[in-house]
Structures are given as C-alpha cells and as structure tokens.
Design a protein around this nucleic acid. Structure first.
Lengths: 338, 338
DNA sequence: CCGATGCCGGTAATCGATTACGCACAATCT
DNA sequence: AGATTGTGCGTAATCGATTACCGGCATCGG
C-alpha cells in the first residue's frame, strides 16, 4: 500500500560498506576495483534488488539508453516490421525503443524530434513525413545518432537506408508493359513523400523506354490511406467504357485500398484489370487472386538501421552510410496479359 | 558540427533577469508570479528556444511524463490498434508512449516492468504474457498507475478492461451449433493466457447447453503464431474421412493461420468446412469468402484504458474500474449450415 | 632507507529541474 | 504608529547517478 522508497545506489553502497563511486564503478565495469570488493558490491546489489534510476543516470551521462523509432503509421505492417527489427537489435544492446507515431503529421514529427533531443536519446530511426519540410537539423546539432530510413530528407547528410524506389517503380511498370498493358493508373502519396515520388520516376522511366508517357489523369495523389485509395480506384473504374487496364498502387495501404476498390467495381482480376502492389503483407497471399507486388526487404532495413546506431554510438565520427536496398518483383495472380 | 550545449533553465533565467525558481513557476503555472515578470519569462523561453530536460524534471519530480504500453505482439493489428488508441489520448495529455513488445516472453515482460518502475513512469497499460506467472506487484508497490487490458492477471486488484471473453466463445460456438455443426475444432493459445481460456470456457458452456462436450482431440494449443495455427489446421484436415466440420480460431493471428490452413487443405468454405475467427482485421473482408468472426471493440478498450490512466494521475486513490466489454458476432461468408 | 610511481577507492562536484524555506516589502488591522 | 498578515521572489537543498580529483598505501628502484 505505502509506496516503499526505491533502492538507491547509496543503499547498495551502505550494504556493501563502500562508497557510491565504487558501486558505480563495479556495476558499470569502469576503472579497476579489488575483486573481493567487487563481489561484495554485486552481492549487495542482488540483495537490495537495486535497479539504477535511468533519469539520474541519463542526467549525469547526458545520454539516455533509449532509441526513438519515428514512423508515420503504426497500423502499416511495413512499419511494425521495421520497428520490430529495430527492437530486436535494441534489446541485445540493452536499449529501450520509444515508438513515435506521427500519423503523417509534421507537427507531431517535430514534437517527437524535440523530445528525442531533450531526452538526449542514444539514437533515432526516422521515416519522415515529408522530404522538403521535415527538418532533422536539431538532431545533427545535438549530435544525436540518426538513421533516416524508407523516405529521403532534404539537406540531411547522415546515414540513410532506403529502398531503391526508382527501381521498384520500374520493375512494376516494366512487368505491366511486358504484359501488354498501356493504360496504367498510378496511385501515389502526397507529393512530399520521396518513396512514391521516386517510384513514380521509375514508372516514367519505364514508360519512356516504351515510348509512352504517364497520363496525368491516370495519376492520383492520396493521403496514403486505405479508404482514399479505395475511393480513387472505384471512381476510376466507374466508367466501363474508359477505365485503365492496369493499376500500380505504390505502398502497402494503397495496395489494400486498390484491391478493395477493384473488388467493389466488379471487374475481375487479372482478366479485366491487372494490379501491381507494394509490400509483401500476409493478406496479399490469402486473397484470390493473390497480389502481384514489389517486395521490400523490411527486416533488413530495420536491422541495418539499428546496427548503424550501434556503430555510431561506438564511433560518432564514422563515415555516414548510404544504402539502397533492392526491391523484388513477386509475380502472383493479379496480373496477366492484356 | 560542434554540439552546442542545450539551453538550460538557468539560461532562460539569466535572459529574463529572474531566478530559475521563477522560470519554473511561470512555465509550470504554479505559485503566483507578477504578470509582467511572467511575460518576460515566457518571452525569454521563446527567444532561447528553451526545452525542459525531461531527465532532470523526472528525477526531481519522481515522475516521468511517459506511459508504457506493454503488449505481446506488435505485429498483431489488435495490439497496434490498441496502442494507437492509447497514444491518441496520450498526445492530448502531453505524454509520450513507450512501446514495449514482449513477444510473449515472460522475461522481456519483467524487464519492461522493471524499467517502468525505475523510470517512475506516469502509467502502464499492459496485456500480460501469462495469467498465473506475470507479476505486476512491483507496479503496485511503486504506485505506478496501471491498467490491465485484454488479458487477466492473477492477484491484481487494480483497473482491468477486458473483453467478455466467455461471451465471445459462447457467441461463436452457438452460431456454429445453430448451423448444425457438431464436430468443432478449437484453436487456442497456451494455457496461461486468459483470453483463450475464457473463450474456451464459453465454448464449453455453449456445448453443454446443447448436450455436447468438447473433444480434447479437437482442442489444439498453439503459441498464438500464424504458422502454428496453419500447421495445426492442415494436420487436422489431412484425413478426408475424419476432419472437423467447423473451426473456431480464438484470436487474430490464429484466424489468419486457420484460414491459410483451410486454403491449403483444398476444402471449400463454407460448404465443406466452416470457420469462425476473432478480430475484425482488414483482410477478413477482402478474402473470399469473407471471414465470420467475433469482433472486439479495440479502440474503446485502448481509449478507456488511457482515460483511466489520466484519472489515476489526478486521483491515485480512485476506486479501481473493472470493465467487461461486449463482443459482437459478425456473420459473413465462412460459415453455413452443415 | 627514501622518494617516485601506481593503484584503489573515497569525497565532492555535477547533470537540470523542482520546491521548501525564508526574506523583504506592502497591505491590513488594532 | 506598531503589529500582523500576506504576497512575490530568490537561495539553496534535493532527486540519483557518474566521475574529476585527490589522498593513502604499497611497490619498486636507486
């Protein structure tokens, strides 16, 4: 009932009959301490069930054993997989991960970045809300180890681990072109998000290679929400005499929405319309037809990012890494010849 | 390049020509301060771009503006929805949420609980790994506001917000019985998890009501993993002359696994076999046939839990709340008459 | 045998905020 | 007028850990 006061380092010191400095040295493995004393300290810590206060420690050390994982949508399996991968590495390093969900909102992102700096976090993995307006300079100024993943950021010179998004767009489009499709609808995100921008560029390259151009009327911007995508696809397929013969949905939620939109339209995949999605989520293999899509190596992205944070902690001056991971086209059931 | 030292409260005090005590009082709205001085302090905080150091603050206050959301599987949409709902409330209260993913492992849960106490967190929302062995007494002892959600815990007297799981099991089973099914396979979790235990109890009640009992051979324990469930269902359906005529999968991942298992078996739903799942995840409406399932009010669970944390912060002595939320049966395409 | 060198471990400063306490001065009461 | 009450603000203690610095002791070389 009555909240017993927590055990402090002083209590351990008293129990072991040494000073707090010695306790700290033993428990952190710094300096050198007589083995017999060290044993006594360790026993005392056991007995008293001592747990260091992270706030006191972080205050003094000017570094908290916490990483922030800042993502724009925790409901998107891509990001939960990413965070899970980061977390696996974190656990091994005795670090906690703070999940920061921005919901694609710049002000929430800003607030999390401020917190990360204020807390003197040991690292940040961030997929930004916008290439142009997101601003990571505070992290750099405060020398917080930072790895940008998934989406590019303007003016950021640190570590970045991205998918080769141009290649992803090209893979998807070339696949559709090879099947003979010419009228391809593209579902993209808002113009500030580098992933869909780059994928669009890949689309354009592929079209150009085939002597075609992207019809602006077939390019739809959405807020990366499932329902947006569904509505857009329903609208595009409403006119039976003038609808695209293929759709490229450029991320996970858009793929979900597009699939539902096609289902709602009554058109049959792949005979009457083809669909290429992105992200190999579980459901894409359970539906019928299964979704043809471009898969990203998510786990690798998360693991690499986390490992870079570990490396940056060891050597803050280490040369920034810029990785471009390869996408893979998985041909399944939603695409066929025109 | 050179990490400029962060702005401290002392800097604001100097800028405003007052003491740090006054700055603190103004910024926290405590005590009374001359309005003109207060204005000067606020301006100084603006100018210097002061951000309070949460570590210093937490150390002194013995309370950090952080909640822990401890769940067993971040990949499970049920939990991400839950966390999202919690987070919405947290943001409104100026609180950060630390995502703690236990992966169903007791030792990871223990470590997160220890961290929560050590950090003097402002609250914990937890779905435990096991009813019998999970131990939240440290939270009580340290008087950390705690709300248990989703799964029951032995010996915990604080706030709990659960689904009426017995009812959930009964709803599913009665639906199958009404359709004439008699040989029902149950996919449950490990025996320590109260959700599937309670749902099983509901199953038994419904069976008893119909003069039947649960065949132990038809009750399968899994680790709540998709692949486990898929394998179990494949095995159960392997013998064409002796397979159940209905399956009840007792949580989200098990439902996914069961669906895949049935697909792999080649049996047609709902004609040859019926399936009732749990959790109204997006994919359940996209597959064909769509999944008949018991839906939980996840958002409400998360929101209520978070609101209780807010209430407990205001009045730690407030009477514990014990909520039992109602499940809803959604009849879709995977069930039909035997 | 004496001074130099190192090793151990204790004392106290420090991180950045909050807050108990008390002083100075003004307002009110007798 | 003198005593009392109250208001506003600053000084300094405090939260719990880490670590710079220093003193004491043992060891070693000359």
């Amino acid at each position: 009932m009555n909240g017993q006061r927590a055990v402090r380092i002083t209590d351990v010191a008293r129990e072991a009959g040494v000073s707090t400095a010695t306790v700290s040295r033993v428990l952190n493995g710094l300096g050198s301490v007589d083995p017999e004393l060290a044993a006594r300290v360790r026993r005392a810590a056991e007995v008293t069930r001592y747990v260091p206060n992270p706030n006191g420690r972080a205050l003094r050390r000017q570094r908290a054993d916490v990483w922030a994982a800042i993502v724009s949508d925790v409901q998107n399996p891509f990001f939960t997989s990413l965070v899970t991968a980061v977390e696996h590495v974190a656990v091994r390093s005795g670090i906690s991960v703070m999940l920061c969900n921005t919901d694609e909102q710049l002000d929430r992102e800003r607030s999390y970045l401020t917190t990360a700096v204020a807390q003197r976090m040991a690292g940040v993995v961030v997929s930004v809300t916008s290439e142009a307006t997101s601003d990571l300079s505070a992290l750099l100024a405060a020398q917080v180890p930072t790895v940008v993943v998934d989406r590019r950021v303007h003016d950021f010179t640190g570590d970045t681990i991205l998918l080769d998004n141009v290649e992803a767009g090209r893979l998807a489009t070339e696949h559709l072109l090879e099947l003979g499709h010419r009228d391809i609808m593209c579902l993209a995100g808002p113009s500030g998000v580098s992933t869909t921008e780059d994928r669009l560029q890949g689309v354009r390259q592929a079209l150009t290679g085939a002597g075609l151009t992207l019809d602006p009327a077939r390019m739809v911007r959405t807020d990366l929400k499932i329902d947006d995508a569904e509505a857009a696809v329903r609208a595009a397929l409403a006119d039976p005499r003038n609808h695209p013969d293929a759709i490229f949905a450029m991320n996970g939620p858009l793929t979900t929405g597009a699939y539902r939109g096609v289902q709602a339209s009554g058109l049959r995949m792949p005979d009457e319309i083809s669909l290429v999605g992105v992200d190999d989520d579980r459901w894409t293999q359970m539906v019928s037809p299964a979704v043809t899509l471009v898969a990203q190596p998510v786990e690798e992205m998360g693991t690499r990012a986390a490992e870079r944070l570990v490396a940056l902690a060891a050597d803050p001056a280490s040369e920034p890494v810029h990785l471009l991971l390869p996408p893979h086209l998985l041909v399944r059931g939603t695409t066929s010849a025109a």
